[in-house]
């Protein structure tokens, strides 16, 4: 797999809620080689502080070499990034990592929590090239409705069945996305999930019970994204050694990793 380091112009910045942003950037080489579930490493400041790049999963790829990232302001890096404007250049590195394997038979369940929804739109669009919309179901959860409304519509506009859950009940069902998942009917299926670790642990457990293959996209601290720093260690299922989110993931089969 070939990675590129590119200066990419921000062509559009959307503020989807108080602290969620969507950037559209122009980076043809990265766009052309990307697969759903892969990520980019973004330099969020020109100076030396914050120092490290930040990993973002690829949210969407569009014609003309455009790539979107979706992010929530959670710290210094994302705050710096949110302040950047269209016309400015971003130093991007990618596409990196192993994405989703979506050539599976049966029903496809895309399960996203919070900002973990990001890679699922790209996945849904890529899936629709080979499967009918009726074979895909999307379950999204967030703390409150403003984090979900725009994204929910993006999926719905593809003709896919979308179910929403919010912790405060302001949109969709009141509760967690895992509760929506637990009420799904049995049958042949594959789960593609991204979100906070506690959510993914529950998703993995439900999938096992229902006999579904489960692929999870894990978020870890990482410095390089290139398997050089080895900072993004994830404990193996057999508790004997580590896999690395940047190279072996970020998408793992839920059976590959230990759920602590």
């Amino acid at each position: 797999m070939r990675a590129y380091q590119q200066q990419a112009e921000i062509v559009r910045s959307e503020k989807l809620s108080d602290d969620i942003y969507r950037f559209t950037v122009n980076m043809a080489d990265i766009a052309a080689g990307s697969k759903p579930g892969q990520f980019v490493m973004v330099r969020v400041a020109e100076g030396l502080d914050p120092l490290l790049r930040r990993p973002f999963s690829i949210h969407q790829v569009a014609k003309g070499g455009l790539v979107q990232i979706l992010f929530k302001v959670v710290g210094r890096g994302t705050r710096a990034l949110a302040g950047m404007q269209p016309g400015q250049q971003l130093d991007m590195l990618g596409p990196l990592g192993r994405g989703f394997a979506h050539d599976r038979p049966g029903q496809h369940y895309l399960v996203g929590g919070g900002i973990g929804i990001a890679p699922l739109l790209f996945l849904a669009k890529r899936m629709l090239k080979t499967v009918e919309p009726s074979a895909i179901r999307v379950l999204l959860g967030a703390a409150t409705g403003t984090e979900l409304d725009v994204l929910g519509e993006d999926f719905a506009s593809l003709g896919i069945d979308v179910q929403l859950a919010t912790e405060d009940g302001s949109l969709g069902e009141e509760g967690l996305v895992t509760e929506l998942m637990a009420s799904l009917p049995p049958g042949e299926g594959t789960v593609y999930a991204c979100g906070p670790y506690p959510m993914l642990r529950v998703v993995a457990g439900i999938s096992r019970k229902k006999g579904w293959e489960c692929q999870v996209s894990l978020e870890t601290m990482m410095a390089c994204g290139l398997a050089a720093c080895l900072g993004c260690a994830v404990l193996r299922r057999d508790m004997n050694g580590y896999v690395h989110a940047c190279k072996d993931g970020p998408v793992f089969n839920a059976d590959e990793v230990a759920w602590l």
Binding site: M221, G231, A233
Partner: peptide, 16 residues
């Protein structure tokens, strides 16, 4: 060598 358990890295002011 397996290395240490995570978290293995942390960002600091102009460093890690």
């Amino acid at each position: 060598r397996q290395g240490n358990p995570p978290p293995r890295i942390a960002e600091t002011a102009a460093g890690m």
